[in-house]
Design a protein around this nucleic acid. Sequence first.
DNA 1: TTCGCTGCAAAGGTTTTGCATCGGA
DNA 2: TCCGATGCAAAACCTTTGCAGCGAA
Lengths: 146, 146
Amino acid sequence: MTPNLDSLSAFRHLCRQHGIAATHQRQAVYECVMESNDHPTPELLHERVRRRIPMISLATIYKCVHTFMRIGLWKEASLHHGPVRVDPNLRPHHHLVCRMCGSMTDISHSGVDLLRIFGKLPRRFRADTVVAEILGTCVDCQIRRR
Amino acid sequence: MTPNLDSLSAFRHLCRQHGIAATHQRQAVYECVMESNDHPTPELLHERVRRRIPMISLATIYKCVHTFMRIGLWKEASLHHGPVRVDPNLRPHHHLVCRMCGSMTDISHSGVDLLRIFGKLPRRFRADTVVAEILGTCVDCQIRRR
DNA sequence: TTCGCTGCAAAGGTTTTGCATCGGA
DNA sequence: TCCGATGCAAAACCTTTGCAGCGAA
């Protein structure tokens, strides 16, 4: 059973669990993200955290974000960001995305109408497309690794 | 009925339909993408197109890609690329992504097990996650626009 | 005290832009 | 001929990195 800790010691506990130092920069970044309802970019996070620690640098934000992702506390919401990729296939289809090399392969729509599955979306959001992104490891990277 | 045209005049026809000039650079970029089975980045496309037009610049590749996307011939396979976005929500969930402002909102998993729906994936791809990305226009942008 | 973390500044990678020139219609 | 497209170079944007000094343990 997790002990009922206040915010500060809960954060220290978390850091100890993962073997990282509990700096106040990390705590501020952590709390700002956990209080967010959106999915902030490092830039936006920097703005928010600076209200508490005016001198914190953007590089530190990036480092904190990577650290928390590495230890599995957060994920990257923006899948396969990086260079644009062109898709000339206009028929509905989904993507197999390799986490290691970033390669993308189409797979057919196969009669799965996701817009129907997600029929009860928030009424206020005007949806036009639903794409399934299937993340994993491609054949080449399975062979190549280790 | 579309006339049966050879490659060159088919391309000219397409350009005329969309009111853009049929330059040989655009034709080479167009053909390279249409012959691709992957989803090339501008960089990779540049390499490939240079086999035909050694002096073509990377800026032209970017401009062509934007043009073909603008007229609706191609899409962007890499959804919401750009700055990283942090996602501290570790429970399975999907995303509402606004095409205009890039904002992302979580929607609940709602019992839809996409990995089961996509049960018959290519055996060789080792899938670990399926995320549905629901693209459209958020409330704020619906109000803001025009 | 020690080692990991921060802040700064520089560099790396991707994309856009301004402008002179070229070429398609 | 005319206007839009290209090529180049510079700038803008996003992210990573190296290193000296700081601070958590």
